[in-house]
């Protein structure tokens, strides 16, 4: 069973179609990057998967529980780092894991700090720890490091890679950063056009030139044919278990 499966997903805002009949999947343990220019609809796909937007047509399934990291940390200002990480914890087991998660993202010395005292990178690490508190099998990442400076970003990317591998997570990473996609992803889907379609699919080891060429292409040499597209108008169902 796929960790994430999307078939024929369509989303419109008013009369503007963001993407239409979009299909993709993430295999268990796979980190897939969804790469495309800003404003092409990548984030909307992720928001649909997280249940924050309702697609107009199509079907998707996120297998198991998921955690999401947004573009901004979105920490609760009145809670310290520990309080923020603990926010989603419901069971004693989840609560018992909080310190371990803070340790995992390297924030133990800052556990009692308030969000306003954190740097951008630290805040984003706290957000990552918060997203892991319910022990999700799937991570949804919406340009999580876009607002972090280049040096910190590299460090955070390495950390993320380690966490995803160590915990056997599956992840869908939305990014507009070509290097981030190359560095992190097992597979890269290039998104573009209006409405957005998957222009190209590149396996790990793809180089910068190939990716830039795919981003620049007008989509006529569409490689997305390898991904099955579902008949239109199929029912919207969601088999997501939690969050």
């Amino acid at each position: 069973m796929k960790a994430i499966e999307v078939r024929g997903l369509t989303k419109t805002f008013g009369d503007h179609t963001i993407f239409s009949k979009l299909s993709l999947h993430v295999a268990p343990g796979e980190l897939v990057a969804l790469l495309g220019p800003s404003g092409c609809g990548k984030t909307t796909i992720l928001r649909c998967l997280a249940g924050l937007e309702k697609p107009d047509a199509g079907w998707f399934n996120v297998n198991g529980s998921s955690g999401i990291v947004f573009q901004e940390p979105r920490l609760f200002g009145w809670l310290d780092v520990r309080g923020n990480v603990a926010f989603g914890a419901r069971t004693p087991e989840e609560r018992a894991r909080i310190d371990e998660l803070i340790e995992l993202v390297g924030l133990s010395p800052a556990a009692t700090k308030l969000p306003k005292e954190l740097s951008g990178g630290m805040a984003q690490r706290a957000a990552l720890a918060r997203s892991l508190v319910r022990n999700p099998q799937v991570l949804l990442l919406d340009e999580p490091f876009a607002a972090v400076d280049a040096l910190r970003r590299y460090e955070l990317q390495r950390q993320l890679r380690t966490i995803v591998e160590a915990r056997g997570l599956s992840a869908l990473l939305v990014t507009h950063d070509v290097d981030e996609a190359i560095f992190l992803a097992d597979r890269i889907l290039v998104l573009g056009g209006e409405p957005a379609t998957i222009r190209a699919e590149l396996a790990q080891g793809a180089n910068r030139e190939q990716l830039l060429a795919a981003l620049a292409s007008d989509g006529k040499d569409d490689v997305s044919a390898v991904i099955p597209s579902e008949a239109e108008g199929s029912r919207i169902t969601s088999a997501r278990t939690t969050c």
């Binding site: 997280a50 249940g51 924050l52 999401i68 947004f70 901004e72 979105r74 609760f76 200002g77 009145w78 926010f87 989603g88 319910r134 939690t242 969050c243």
Partner: peptide, 27 residues
């Protein structure tokens, strides 16, 4: 609204959301 979305992805009820996010954020 972005903070409310965090509550939504964690599946908080309306009352939990009001108590744990809206109230402190509006304090």
């Amino acid at each position: 609204r972005k903070l409310i979305e965090v509550a939504d992805v964690f599946g908080l009820s309306r009352i939990e959301r009001a108590w744990r996010i809206v109230l402190p954020a509006a304090s």
